[in-house]
Write a protein that binds this DNA or RNA. Structure first.
Lengths: 145, 145
DNA sequence: GTAGCATCTAAACCTAACTTTAGGTCAAAT
DNA sequence: ATTTGACCTAAAGTTAGGTTTAGATGCTAC
C-alpha cells in the first residue's frame, strides 16, 4: 500500500498527474482512507499498464476504457487481448518509422561532417546517390522514398 | 516548382498545415509570385527535414532555428551537425524505450491468451516470472524493471 | 460576364494532457 | 498552540500543434 507521494516517486510522475489520472477514471477501484488515496498492487500494476499504453500512443480516454474492462471479469478478456494486439502493431509500425527517421539523421550527420571537412557543402550537395559511400547511400535511399 | 496544393499532396499534409509552418518561419526563403507561394526543391527538401525532425521529437520553434541556420552558410555547419547528432541519440533512445513497451505488450497478449484458454486469469496471474515460458519471461523482465 | 477553382490573410477556435492556483483538512513535531 | 508537511478539491490556466472560419483575390472555362 502506497500513498500518492510514494507512487509519484516510484513512477516519476507528478502527484498532480496521478490525481488527474484518477479524475479521468484510470483507477476505477482505488480505495480511500478518510479521503486519502491508497495505491495498492492493483493500482501499481495499473500504472505500469498506463505508462505502457500511453507510450504506445493510446489516448487517456481509451486507457480508461481498458481499465473499465478490467473490472468486468472474464467476459472482456477478448477485447483486452485485441487492444494489446492492436497497440503491439502500432508500436511495431512506429519503430519502423523511427528507423527510417534514423537513416535520414545518419545521412544528415554524414552530410555535415563532409561539409565541415570541405569548408562548404558544394561537393556533398551535388553528389548523386550512387556516389555516396555504400552505408550512407542506404540511409539516403531509405529516407528519400 | 510546386504550388501549395501540390506540396500538400506530395507530403500528405493539409494545406493549412503548410501555411502554418510558413507562418512559423519554417520556409525562410520561400518565393511568392503575386502573393502565391512557390515550393521549390529547396522547400521540398526542407519539408523532408521538417518531417524527419518532427518525428524525432523536435519542436517547431527548434526546427525554425535550424532553418535559420541553413540560411547562414558554412559558419553554422557545426551547429547543424550537432543538432542532427542530438536528434539521432534521441531517436535511438526512443526506439529502445519502445522495444521495452513492445515487450510489455507481448507479455500482455500472452497473458490474455492464457486467460482466454483457461476461462479465468487465476492461474496466469499467480504465475511467478520463473514459471513463465522463456520468451515471455524475458518480455516480463524487460517491462517490470 | 459569371461560375468554379485555387489561392490568400487574420483571427478565432480546438484538443489533449497536464499544471497551477486558491483554499481547506489533518496528524505529528516543536 | 502553532508550525510543518502531506494530503484533498474544484476550477482556471497552459501549451503545442494545428484547424476552421470568413472574407478577399485572381485565373480559366463556359
Amino acid at each position: 500500500m502506497y500513498t500518492i507521494g510514494q507512487a509519484s516517486k516510484m513512477f516519476n510522475l507528478p502527484i498532480s498527474t496521478l490525481r488527474y489520472y484518477d479524475k479521468e477514471g484510470l483507477f476505477p477501484n482505488i480505495q480511500r482512507v478518510s479521503g486519502v488515496r491508497r495505491f495498492s498492487d492493483n493500482e501499481i500494476e495499473a500504472l505500469r499498464v498506463i505508462e505502457c499504453l500511453k507510450k504506445s500512443g493510446l489516448a487517456i480516454k481509451d486507457i480508461k476504457k481498458f481499465m473499465e474492462w478490467s473490472t468486468q471479469g472474464s467476459q472482456t478478456f477478448k477485447q483486452r487481448k485485441e487492444l494489446f494486439e492492436k497497440q503491439k502493431s502500432a508500436v511495431e509500425n512506429e519503430i519502423d518509422k523511427l528507423e527510417r527517421v534514423l537513416d535520414m539523421l545518419k545521412y544528415k550527420c554524414w552530410y555535415y561532417e563532409e561539409a565541415i571537412k570541405d569548408g562548404n557543402e558544394d561537393k556533398v550537395s551535388a553528389m548523386l546517390p550512387d556516389q555516396l559511400p555504400e552505408d550512407i547511400r542506404v540511409c539516403y535511399d531509405n529516407s528519400h522514398i
